[in-house]
C-alpha cells in the first residue's frame, strides 16, 4: 500500500509558528491607522492563514486533483455569491468606502 506523502511533525510545527506570527502581525497592525488599506491587509493575512491550514493541516497539497476540485468548488461558489451580490449593490449607485464612495 502506498501512503500519500505526509507533512512531517517538524513541518506542522513550522506551519503553526507561521500562523502564530501572522496572528501577531494582524493584531499589531490593528493598532496602526492605515485608512482604506486596513480591511485589505487584515483580509489578505486571513487568506494566507486559511491557505496554510488548507494546504498543510488539511493536507490538500498531498491529495488528488479530484479532492482539490471538490474542496475548491465550495470556495468558488462562495466567491461567485459575493462577487455577484457586490455587482448588484454597486449597481444601485453606492460605492464602497475603499473606492472613495
Amino acid at each position: 500500500m502506498s501512503e500519500p506523502i505526509q507533512t512531517s511533525v517538524r513541518g506542522l510545527l513550522w506551519t503553526y509558528l507561521a500562523l502564530m506570527l501572522l496572528l501577531f502581525a494582524t493584531w499589531a497592525l490593528s493598532f496602526i491607522q492605515m485608512g482604506t488599506y486596513d480591511v485589505v491587509v487584515s483580509t489578505i493575512i486571513a487568506l494566507v492563514k486559511a491557505v496554510l491550514v488548507l494546504l498543510v493541516f488539511m493536507e490538500l497539497r498531498s491529495k488528488s486533483g479530484l479532492v482539490n476540485v471538490f474542496a475548491g468548488m465550495g470556495f468558488y461558489f462562495l466567491s461567485l455569491l459575493i462577487i455577484i451580490a457586490m455587482f448588484d449593490y454597486l449597481a444601485r449607485g453606492g460605492y464602497p468606502y475603499w473606492l472613495g464612495g
Binding site: 479532492v67 471538490f70 465550495g74
Partner: peptide
C-alpha cells in the same frame, strides 16, 4: 475524504451566505 469535502462545501456555503451579508452591510 471526498465525501467529507462535499460536506465541508455545504458548510462553506452555509457560512458563506452570512459572510456575504456581512460584506454588504459593512460596505453600506
Amino acid at each position: 475524504t471526498l465525501g467529507m469535502w462535499v460536506f465541508l462545501a455545504t458548510e462553506i456555503m452555509f457560512f458563506g451566505t452570512m459572510i456575504a451579508s456581512y460584506t454588504m452591510y459593512r460596505i453600506t
